Amino acid sequence: MASTILPRSAMRSLSRATPSIPSIPSTVPRIAIRCLHQKTSPIMASRLQHRPSVSHWNQRIPNTVAGLGRRTLFIQTETTPNPDALKFNPNERVLPESIASPFLEYLTPRSTLAPPHPSPLAAKLLNIDGVTSVFFGVDYITVTKDNATPWAHVKPEVFAIITESMHSGQTIVNTVEDKAGESGQGGTELDSLAYDENDSEVIGMIKELLETRVRPAIQEDGGDIEFRGFEDGKVLLKLRGACRTCDSSTVTLKNGIESMLMHYIEEVKSVEQVLDQEEEVSLAEFARFEEKLRQQKGPNAAPSTVGKGSLDTVE
């Protein structure tokens, strides 16, 4: 295809015929420059009237990971019917889920080190002057003291030790192999109120009533209950925690548990508490002391406290 070559005269005439593009007035740049650099009044001040400057973007991102990892600890204390026992309720589980028993009880410093469930926390608590026993429920801790030590001297230290142990995440209860067959804690066996297919119909009914009607109330008071057997119409029970040394434990057994079981199960004739050897010795010593006081004050003197052999005991 041949190219067309225009003469120079035709090119000049074509350029004259094309309309010229109007130029931008020179006043516009001067106005824009004057608007950018002139001083602004406070009323008309605006960020749009100032020259933009370059700044580094430094937005802070909230540390949500650290916030999520922070533990919140709240421990509530409750009084119990036993004036020498206090219940501490942390907002987390106390006993590990691997332990089948719903409670562990430590009565001596040796029991806190003995298998199968030694406890560093119980060892520290029993090391406090005046503390006589430590009871671990599933989600609460009951501390019992002697009647000669006021709570004002014991409670702050107990509260500080429990708070430090819970907040640091230390193991509350350990599990070690019991090679010598030594059981240093109460409640290390299976739950005595758990269902057993070998139980008779009467024992099954007794366990169900104790589990649904009695145990929640006793746990609310900082203790627990064990079923020790059913013989000749007698239901053998063992109170733990705050209820173990409570003065009203006999009234609880007789007027509360015994009346309810006899009402629903006609085979039940009575309810008795099973005592450990140490408790039998202490009760015997207490009975001798009561008898000695009675002889000194006279035959018509009333017992000083509620206990076995006293006027308030229901036989």
Rank of each mutant, 00 (worst) to 15 (best):
D84V: 01
T79H: 06
P96T: 10
L86H: 08
I99L: 13
T112L: 09
A100T: 13
T112K: 05
P118Q: 05
Y106R: 01
A122P: 05
P90Q: 08
S101K: 05
A122S: 09
I99R: 05
P81R: 03
S111P: 10
P120T: 02
L95Q: 09
A85D: 06
A122I: 03
P118L: 05
L68C: 08
N63M: 03
A123L: 11
L104T: 02
I99H: 11
F103I: 04
E92F: 13
P115R: 06
T80Q: 00
N89P: 02
E78Y: 09
V65D: 13
L73K: 00
S111C: 12
V94Q: 06
K87S: 06
L73I: 15
L107W: 07
S111V: 07
L95Y: 11
Q76M: 10
T79P: 01
V65I: 14
K124A: 14
V65Q: 13
K87G: 01
L107S: 13
A123H: 12
Y106I: 02
T112E: 09
F88Q: 04
Y106H: 03
L95W: 09
L73W: 05
E92T: 14
P81E: 01
G67T: 05
V94T: 08
L95T: 08
N63S: 13
P96K: 08
R110P: 00
D84F: 10
E78C: 09
L113E: 13
V65P: 00
R70P: 00
P102Q: 08
N63I: 00
P90M: 09
R110D: 14
A123V: 00
N127K: 08
A114R: 04
F74N: 15
L95V: 11
P96L: 11
E92N: 11
S98Y: 12
V94R: 05
I99V: 15
S111I: 04
N63R: 11
S111M: 06
L68Q: 12
K124M: 09
A85Y: 07
N82C: 11
L104K: 02
P115W: 07
N127M: 03
I75M: 05
L125V: 03
A114S: 15
N91S: 11
P83Y: 01
L86V: 13
S101V: 04
H117V: 03
P120F: 02
G67F: 10
T108L: 08
S98V: 12
T77N: 01
L104F: 06
P116G: 07
A66K: 14
E105N: 07
P116A: 10
F88A: 04
S119A: 06
A114Q: 15
N91G: 13
N127V: 00
P83N: 01
L121C: 07
L121G: 02
F103Q: 04
F103T: 03
K124N: 10
R70W: 02
P109D: 09
P90K: 07
L125T: 01
P96Y: 09
G69N: 13
R71Q: 10
F74Q: 14
N89I: 15
D84A: 08
Q76I: 12
